[in-house]
């Protein structure tokens, strides 16, 4: 693995009295796509929200480009170039597509808008449409596009394929590869293990708030345990 852009060590996160992450270690190399797989309730979204500063880390370190960002405020984390397309998309449903993108853009807006629309030509015709009226796939594109507006150095994707038709899932994963080609490192949490392992360089499997297995995505894709649990028994 190349020098990590994001490295997490000993991360513990509590929700109320219950600990969700019990000392989690994970690293993502510069320019890589790392996939985190795992069943519902394994703590994947908790991990993603903690990285972005939405949840508080109880203990451990989250280093982004060498700097500890654990418990930094979410808007400061965004400013450092660590963006997330969160679970459930969290777009601004009663604002227009353009307004959603501009909000993502901060000071950059105009310059970035064209670059983002090049990746998502579907959104170009819908700029003045209310975001809540987009289809699920378009909303996911808007969500990723909104994050790209800030020129991220790293992008976190939480369940980008959730609830989308297989054709759209394929489209989204193609985009993920294209975004990486632009030099953005990507950490992706996915239930669709097959699609995620296909695009990822490295992968890790989360079980009960820790990383169970990890390794090269191609190796994990043929690991019998992964095959049985996440790929439906036939690799």
């Amino acid at each position: 693995m190349s020098a990590p852009i994001l490295s997490i060590s000993g991360l513990r996160v509590k929700m109320g009295a219950q600990e969700i992450l019990h000392g989690l270690d994970l690293a993502c190399g510069k320019g890589e796509i790392v996939a985190v797989l795992g069943a519902n309730g394994a703590g994947k979204t908790t991990l993603m929200r903690t990285i972005s500063g939405v949840y508080r880390a109880g203990a451990g370190a989250i280093r982004f480009e060498g700097e500890d960002i654990a418990n930094a405020r979410s808007h400061d984390i965004v400013r450092k170039g660590l963006l997330q397309a969160p679970e459930g998309r969290q777009i601004f449903s009663n604002m227009t597509v353009r307004e959603n993108l501009v909000l993502g853009g901060g000071a950059l807006r105009g310059a970035e808008m064209d670059r983002v629309l090049e990746l998502f030509p579907q959104l170009r015709d819908r700029l003045s449409q209310i975001a809540g009226s987009l289809s699920g796939g378009e909303q996911q594109m808007l969500c990723i596009g909104r994050a790209l507006m800030q020129r991220p150095r790293m992008l976190l994707l939480d369940e980008p394929s959730l609830g989308l038709a297989p054709k759209i899932v394929q489209l989204i994963f193609n985009l993920v590869t294209r975004i990486r080609e632009q030099g953005v490192s990507i950490l992706i949490v996915e239930q669709n293990a097959r699609a995620a392992l296909k695009v990822a360089d490295h992968a890790a499997v989360m079980e009960g708030g820790r990383i169970g297995l990890s390794g090269r995505a191609s190796e994990l894709a043929s690991d019998p345990r992964v095959v049985e649990l996440y790929l439906g028994g036939h690799a």
């Binding site: 449903s93 993502g104 901060g106």
Partner: peptide, 15 residues
């Protein structure tokens, strides 16, 4: 408007 519409989403775009 963003915070009013979706405070969580607002955090993710750096508001």
């Amino acid at each position: 408007r963003a915070v009013s519409n979706n405070p969580l989403g607002a955090k993710y775009v750096g508001v």
